Simulated assay, not measured.
Amino acid sequence: MITCTKKYFDIPFAHRQHLHDGHCSFVHGHNWDIFVTFACENLDENGFVVDFGKLKFLKEWIDLHLDHACVLASSDPLKDKLVSAAPEAWNVYEVDSCSCEGLARHLLEVFDSLVRKNSNGRVWVCKLEVSEDKKNSATAYGKNS
């Protein structure tokens, strides 16, 4: 197996950790970084795991779902109330858990599916790291790691 990593920096989005007993229970924002590590057994005809120039589908996904969005947990009891108060003001993306760890796991699953589809199964995501304001991070590892 051989790997390479693509880094996406300074993606602004908010989240709310509704189960937290401190200030993280309020809607608040960060600049996030996402580091995606790709893996394969056989390099392509150019000698690449992936051609970084052909990963636009990941950047487009990030721009559509995360850029200036608010990530909320599906189980957040205030989610519908927050959004219905001013629906035109929200770009909400729902996940099981919007902690750094939950985001790493979720994004690994989403990106792995997209990468496998776009590479006809030759490449997979073996690791995905999410960094919150360059201070805190969490890493999820794929099943093929």
Rank of each mutant, 00 (worst) to 15 (best):
A104M: 07
F52R: 01
R16F: 04
H68P: 05
H106Q: 10
T3C: 01
K7H: 14
H23Y: 03
T37F: 03
S137Q: 09
N118R: 11
C100A: 15
T3K: 09
E41M: 12
S113A: 14
K134W: 10
K127C: 11
K117C: 00
N118Y: 04
N118T: 01
K143L: 13
R105G: 04
R122D: 02
R122A: 14
L114D: 01
C40F: 04
P87Y: 09
S84H: 02
D10R: 12
V95C: 12
T37L: 00
W61A: 08
V49K: 06
K56F: 00
H65M: 08
S75V: 07
V130H: 04
R116L: 11
S137C: 15
W90H: 11
N42C: 00
R105W: 00
R116V: 11
H28T: 06
A14F: 04
L108S: 04
W90T: 03
V92H: 07
W61N: 11
C100K: 06
N31H: 14
H30F: 05
S25G: 07
A86P: 00
P77S: 06
L55T: 06
P77Q: 05
P77F: 07
N42F: 09
L78Q: 15
L72G: 06
V130R: 04
S137D: 06
L108W: 02
L43E: 02
D51H: 10
G142L: 08
